[in-house]
Design a protein around this nucleic acid. Structure first.
Lengths: 193, 193
DNA sequence: GTCTATAACATGATAGAC
DNA sequence: GTCTATCATGTTATAGAC
């Protein structure tokens, strides 16, 4: 339209830059979540965002850096100190509430089995979750083991639902799943009750 | 050594061919399990097996076919018809007994989140397991949902242990894990007991 | 039958014109 | 600042020499 280097009042050059950068990150997040790290190409991300592939490189330097900035690790700190609240918080936190998982987390999970860097990140995150849960666990034997089993259980259900799309999980409302799951989680956190 | 087209008594040409083919499959299985479908190259498989990459192609036609023949889908039919035996069989079947998982199954699991073909195969296999478990489940509501939760739970634990190598699971003997897990699985299969 | 050489293609990354 | 053109590499797969 205008030839110009005149900044418009509500859309400065920096603003435009920020906007396209955000759009690229959004598209990257989506593609990484859908196809994983390896099968997501810079070209595909650029195409989806309507920009040139070289621009993506210009902005982020490398595919790895783009991935890192796009997925945004969620600390997901599980800090409930009592036994009862713990179970409910667990069910709510790690995605039941199924379908309410941030796309960045899906991207990370999608890539964790084939990309070592993603695996390291997930290992660290799950490790923190395990420690947090173990700390909030009622006095039992092997709190870390029990916490690990809780975390991996929820991980498996999330994978089956979000990443594999198993029919029985897809077709069931989240709170129903949570209801059935609750006694099992409770059994893991405390031996008897 | 000998120049020869003379077949030796215990190692005919067909035998040698079968032997190298088996060695290639073994190496392929190992690499697919370790790095997944995408990151496993024909060259790496050939190198590991001590043969030429072209020979692998000659034998199997394509990387996909090599993968298919190498991983050998395990039907893993869970056929226990009673309620009590079901739980024990589940714990035994899907890998606790942790560490006793066939390498082909690991390869399939490693690739299932990023390779659509592997995902389809896993979806089908888990679907069969879910149906089988649902059929053997004591009369409750939503047997398929409960079965799906059981399967995904064991899947998650297997991933955490075998594929991610979470410390608490790696450092614990299998039967201890099974003991802690049993009440949780029981809670999933039957609402109260 | 086995392997060398190469085709045909896609990728991440870079250099330089506009 | 943005994009065209290209590089360097690595992939599966094929053709042909030995």
């Amino acid at each position: 339209m205008s030839t110009s280097h005149q900044p418009r009042p509500h859309q400065s050059r920096a603003d435009r830059r920020r906007a396209t950068e955000a759009r690229i990150l959004e598209c990257a997040r989506e593609l990484f979540a859908e196809k994983g790290f390896d099968r997501t190409t810079i070209r595909a991300v650029a195409s989806a965002a309507g920009v040139d592939p070289a621009l993506v490189m210009q902005y982020f330097g490398s595919k790895r850096e783009l991935f890192t900035q796009a997925v945004q690790a969620i600390p997901a700190v599980p800090t409930a100190t009592h036994a009862e609240a713990l179970v409910d918080e667990l069910l709510a936190t790690l995605g039941l509430k199924l379908g309410g998982l941030p796309e960045g987390a899906l991207a990370m999970m999608r890539s964790m089995l084939t990309d070592p860097a993603a695996a390291d990140q997930v290992r660290a995150t799950l490790g923190r979750q395990i420690d947090g849960i173990a700390a909030a666990m009622p006095a039992t034997e092997d709190p870390e083991l029990r916490a690990a089993l809780v975390v991996t259980t929820l991980l498996g259900i999330t994978i089956g639902h979000q990443l594999l799309g198993l029919a029985p999980l897809r077709d069931t409302p989240a709170d129903r799943v949570a209801d059935i799951l609750r006694p099992a989680i409770k059994a893991l956190t405390g031996p008897a009750d």
